[in-house]
């Protein structure tokens, strides 16, 4: 056979498990990362959201009276998603730069399995950070979230796939670490802040409304809030899920075409 076709062969779904296994090992080897992940929900929820909550009255959200802390807790989930997108970028950049992506593909890991496998690192990080957030919600006695918050978090995993896939695409386009870091600073960080994470959806100024409307996270946050507050909004939920499917397919397509390298210049 032509060696260029190595990457066309498949080891089946086992490929996803191998990549997952490696990512789980990488996750638990990254103690420093775990410590910084622990701090993020504490900083944003305990210090920022609870601070603002004490100066804000309860408000009406789609006919339901809720506290700012309850509303913004889902915003923190959005922020966690973008953080984990950065993790996906870091992991897939290392994987691509040091030729591991090439080796995995040549051994029969197909792009779709690769995406699933590489998403495990951000999913673990997401679940870990959300668990800390959930404990904070219990500690601060935020009402009405104890049962539905975990369900929203599980649905959020599908939405996280959108961001991790996007992260994998981006890392394939970066030529060096500088490009990656600039991109993370300039594009990823604003994603959570231009979506209605911490401001009230529908009450933002025009420029922010425009930015929010083109930001996929806006729809994801609306979908998560519709689950938590039991607001039947099937369209938003389906739109969010479709966005994930589309990005995963696009990522798989691009990965199938990408030129494999054993080591990129930094």
């Amino acid at each position: 056979m032509d060696p260029l076709n190595f990457r066309k062969q498949s080891i089946g779904f086992r490929g996803a498990f191998i990549v997952m296994y490696n990512e789980i090992n990488a996750f638990f080897s990254n103690l420093g990362g775990l410590i910084s992940m622990t701090m993020q929900p504490i900083l944003f929820f305990a210090f920022l959201v609870m601070g603002l909550n004490s100066t804000t009255n309860n408000f009406n959200y789609h006919g339901i009276i809720i506290s700012y802390a309850s509303y913004a807790s889902i915003g923190v989930v959005g922020l966690i998603m973008t953080t984990q997108m950065s993790q996906a970028v870091y992991r897939s950049t290392v994987d691509k730069q040091f030729g591991l992506m090439a080796i995995k593909f040549m051994n029969g890991v197909r792009p779709f399995q690769y995406i699933l496998g590489m998403s495990v690192f951000p999913i673990f990080g997401y679940l870990y950070q959300c668990l800390i957030l959930y404990l904070l919600l219990i500690v601060f006695k935020i009402k009405g979230l104890v049962v539905l918050f975990p369900i929203a978090i599980l649905v959020g995993i599908i939405m996280l796939l959108f961001w991790s896939s996007l992260g994998i695409i981006c890392s394939c386009l970066f030529k060096n670490y500088q490009q990656r870091d600039i991109f993370i600073q300039l594009v990823f960080t604003p994603i959570a802040f231009t979506a209605p994470s911490f401001y009230l959806d529908g009450h933002e100024p025009l420029y922010l409304k425009i930015l929010a409307n083109i930001n996929p996270m806006t729809y994801q946050l609306r979908a998560l809030r519709s689950i938590i507050y039991r607001i039947p909004d099937i369209t938003t939920i389906i739109t969010s899920l479709l966005l994930t499917i589309l990005v995963v397919i696009l990522t798989a397509f691009l990965l199938d075409k990408i030129q494999l390298t054993l080591q990129e210049k930094t």
């Binding site: 190595f6 062969q9 490696n22 040091f98 591991l100 080796i103 051994n107 054993l262």
Partner: peptide, 19 residues
């Protein structure tokens, strides 16, 4: 897949630095 039967070491270190 054919490559499963190949032991390949490139000149550059092909390593996962996270693990």
């Amino acid at each position: 897949p054919n490559f499963n039967k190949v032991g390949f070491c490139p000149q550059v270190p092909l390593i996962d630095w996270f693990t």
